[in-house]
Amino acid sequence: MINIIWLAMIVIAVGVAGIRCLGITISPLGIYLVPSFEPLSQLTNGVFEYSKFAVELAIGLVGLMALWLGIMKIAEKSGLITVIARGLRPVMVKLFPEIPPEDPAMGSIIMALSATMLGLGNASTPLGLKAFQDMQKLNKHKNIATNAQCTYMAMSTSSVTIIPATIIGIRSAAGSDNPTDIIAPVIIATVISTTVAVVMSKFLQRLPRYQVENFIEQDEENNNEKS
């Protein structure tokens, strides 16, 4: 998918610049051409300048990423994430009624969502995978997603984020006067999107077309085709 989009953007760009080089001009005297290489040379300059920018930006990011990952390592080692997880438990029990409160799946869901909230990024992916594996143990139909898995999925893609570390880093590298002024808006927007995620998944799981039974037949058909 990304391959096609990337290629299409470059092809369209060069195409548009090429057409502009013909210099099609419409005036009361009629349509005539004023050819020039200006648009294509603009494109070349733009491309060269921005590839230099890309590296400067990434290097500018090093310091802040190091700072943040250092702080988060302390949070991880000191067990602060476990403390936050404990605080979230009462809410989570309501959000995932299918999962017994004492099941290991509940613990790993809370850990994974807490990690995403703190902007741990790549560090939260293994926790998410663990949560999914634990939820899978409670799944009766192994090829079909459970309600809990779908709710978790929607929540983690819209997760409440307290510190968007990479974004703050890029803003600072680009010379912002106040790179952190986006924290409060991000918290508000993610609270809204997480609410929508929970409401939508709870609503959709009741619709007839998303019932597990429908998928059992489909799944068997798929298996028959393969064998």
Binding site: Q133, N143, A145, T151, A154, S158, S201, Q218, D219
Partner: peptide, 16 residues
């Protein structure tokens, strides 16, 4: 986890 039928996961996540 080898789940092939994702049910309402994608529509819910995209709406969010």
């Amino acid at each position: 986890i080898n789940v092939r039928q994702t049910r309402h996961a994608l529509p819910a996540a995209l709406t969010a």
